[in-house]
Computed example of a mutant assay.
Amino acid sequence: MFKLIFLGWLTGVILSLTTAALGSFVLWRRIASFGDTLSHSSILGIAISIIFNINSFFSLFLLMSILAIILAWLETLLPFAIDTILNIISHSTLSLGIILMSIISNNHRIDVTHYLFGDLLAVTKYDLIIIVINSIIILSILYYYWNYILSATINEELAQADGINIFYARLIIMLIIALNISISIKFVGALLITSLLIIPPATAQHFSNSPENMVIISILVSIISVTGGIIFSFYAHTPTSPSIVLFSSFLCLISNIRKYFFYK
């Protein structure tokens, strides 16, 4: 059993290191819809890669980077929350992607479900190496810009007083989220990568008293979710990624129940 699930489990653990940190910023900035927007736009990115016969990573990252730049720019201009625009872009890109897929499906064999749901247990050593390199790049950027991005996220007024460019701080975090999703989505699917981005930080916020503490707890919750979900899927013969998502959601539910009954 261990040999069968080890590569998939290790991939999930490594992904947890980046998604937990990035997801914490998503929650602090209240843009949980951003991950969904990027994952939905992946269908459009895949369709573009097929039409122009280019590597799916390049089309996904280019499209998501453009969306990230537009959203970071709009955030500086709009006097209201960006969630409405995120939802409009999310459903528009998804619809356009599905339309393009239906047009080109007559000439190409397309497995969209692989990009949506993935198969963590089908990850190869080569896939793992790519994800490790991606994680090292993202964690290095986060480590270098941690105080810069954190200040702009937690308290914009104070950050501006300290001379921090809010637009660039937002752009950095959005671009590395786009990078993480565009690389990981091919191997683990949009469902798993976006759930690891949102659910573990949502669970960890009930147990943390500082940003750094929240990231660490998010990583632990994410690793527990990956481990529990994989074990459950192995014995129950259920799809791996949905099992991990449900296990993560269960932990989030337990944390909310605990908060409701014991910390009123």
Results as ranks from 00 to 15, higher is better:
154 I>V: 12
25 F>C: 04
116 L>M: 12
71 L>M: 15
249 S>Y: 09
127 D>R: 02
115 Y>D: 05
65 S>L: 07
32 A>Y: 08
48 I>A: 12
246 L>S: 07
203 T>G: 11
73 W>D: 10
187 F>D: 03
185 I>W: 11
15 L>K: 07
118 G>N: 03
77 L>G: 00
87 N>H: 03
73 W>M: 10
14 I>D: 07
263 Y>M: 10
147 N>M: 00
217 I>E: 09
198 I>N: 02
260 Y>M: 10
128 L>D: 14
68 A>Q: 01
228 G>F: 13
115 Y>M: 13
83 D>P: 12
29 R>M: 15
154 I>T: 06
158 L>W: 02
29 R>H: 15
62 L>M: 13
88 I>A: 12
240 T>L: 05
128 L>C: 15
226 V>A: 13
188 V>K: 02
121 L>A: 10
14 I>R: 13
109 R>N: 14
57 F>I: 09
187 F>C: 12
90 S>T: 04
41 S>T: 12
3 K>A: 10
134 N>I: 06
158 L>Q: 04
215 V>D: 00
216 I>F: 12
210 S>V: 12
87 N>F: 05
98 I>V: 14
87 N>Y: 03
234 F>W: 08
149 I>C: 07
73 W>E: 04
60 L>Y: 11
209 N>M: 05
111 D>T: 01
100 L>G: 01
77 L>A: 03
211 P>H: 02
143 Y>A: 15
25 F>D: 06
140 S>Q: 10
198 I>D: 00
80 F>W: 01
9 W>Q: 13
263 Y>T: 12
177 I>G: 00
125 K>N: 15
154 I>F: 05
133 I>W: 11
42 S>E: 03
249 S>L: 15
1 M>V: 14
143 Y>M: 13
100 L>C: 11
216 I>N: 01
82 I>Q: 04
236 A>P: 10
60 L>G: 06
164 I>F: 09
12 G>S: 13
167 F>K: 09
28 W>N: 09
69 I>N: 00
159 A>M: 01
199 I>P: 06
78 L>P: 00
206 H>W: 12
238 T>S: 15
134 N>Y: 04
